[in-house]
Structure formats: C-alpha cells, structure tokens
Design a protein around this nucleic acid. Structure first.
Length: 188
DNA sequence: CGGATTTGACCTGCGC
DNA sequence: GCGCAGGTCAAATCCG
C-alpha cells in the first residue's frame, strides 16, 4: 500500500487563482491517503475516515514524484490491450490518491488539463461520478470526481497514476518556491 | 471547424 | 453461468 501525504500546493493555489471573482469560498479540508484503501471503502467510508483537522498537509518528495514520475507510462506501454483497450484500465497506473474538498464547484483546476470521458451513477454514491483523463499526449493519469454521499458540499477527487510530464502550471509556479513561501504571498 | 462534453452501449470482474 | 456494478469507448452533440 502506498502512502502519500498529499500536500501538493498546486491544486489549491492554482484553483484559487483561477477562480472567478464570484466563486463561492472553497477550502481544502481533507486529504485522504489511500491506494488499496479505496478498493474496499468506496465513497461512504472515505468521508468517515477523513479528519477535519488536516488542513495543514505535508509537502513531501513523494508528492513531487507524483507529478514527475514515469511509472504510469511504462505500465501502459507494457500492457496488452484487448480489442477496445479496456484491459489498460485494469492495470494499476500508479499510486491512487484521494482527497475531499469542501467546494460548490466540482471542477478544480489543479494545473493539469483534463478531458472528461465518462459519467456514471454508482451504487455506493447517489451522486454522479465523473471520469477524467489527463489530456496531455502519452499521459494516462486519470481522476474521478464525485460529491460526498453524506455531505454534498464536499467533493471527493481521486487521482490514479503518475503524470509523465510537468504541469503547465509549473511554468509559472515552481514547487520549490511554494515550499519557501507563505500562502499569502502567492501571486501571479 | 476543431476541441470538449454528453451519453448510451459495451466490456470486465466479482459474487452468488 | 448469470446478473450486477464499475469503468471505458466512441458517436453524436455542443460550444467557442
């Protein structure tokens, strides 16, 4: 089981900077560290497992690896597709990371460009689940976005895989600079 | 017109 | 083997 302190500042900062002036307040509230955990607990337990006091997340090297590693690419290349490519989806793309965000918006700009490829209602959650793929060529990272079953004001975002490219966001915001700066000092 | 989104169909895995 | 649930595909549609 992979453990990650999911404290990558990119999602929150980028999101906040890209919010329109009229957007409702959004606060990162819960970071969920999971891999196989997700397979057994689904959305319902996710919310109950999360902690309300985890606003301060730790930014670690593993998080950096999350953005720059190449394992997902290798996995994809080595995988043998069935005729419609579904087997690719069954192979693990890499670490799976989920976090819960209090937001009225489901789409959070995390610095990457995502293409929506599916929407589904699932039994474990009365809300619809949206499926996204990274739209960067050769990058097979996926994410699922769904509203918390018990509290629809929260959005559960699950990332699966590792980006094999830099976020376009890093052109303007270096991770290093984030590590050494206050939140309040972030600006474009 | 090209890229993004929608949505029904299809596929796979799993439990019974 | 069958049915269900979750995940993905791809044609149709939308939108800038």
């Amino acid at each position: 089981m992979d453990f990650f302190y999911f404290g990558n500042p990119h999602p929150s900062h980028d999101h906040l900077h890209n919010m329109p002036p009229s957007s409702p307040e959004i606060a990162l509230s819960d970071y969920l560290l999971l891999d196989d955990f997700l397979d057994h607990h689904h959305g319902h337990s996710l919310s109950s497992q999360s902690t309300e006091s985890s606003e301060k997340a730790t930014f670690t090297d593993s998080t950096h690896g999350f953005t720059t590693g190449a394992t997902s690419k290798n996995n994809t290349n080595n995988n043998i597709k069935c005729k419609n490519g579904i087997s690719e989806s069954k192979a693990r793309l890499g670490p799976r990371i989920a976090f819960r965000t209090k937001s009225e918006l489901e789409i959070m700009d995390d610095g990457y460009k995502w293409r929506k490829y599916g929407k589904k209602s699932v039994k474990s959650n009365t809300n619809l689940r949206n499926y996204y793929k990274c739209s960067s060529g050769g990058c097979s990272v996926k994410k699922r976005v769904e509203r918390d079953r018990e509290d629809s004001s929260y959005v559960i975002t699950t990332y699966e895989g590792v980006h094999n490219h830099e976020s376009p966001f890093t052109t303007y915001y270096s991770p290093i600079s984030f590590l050494h700066s206050d939140d309040s000092t972030c600006s474009k």
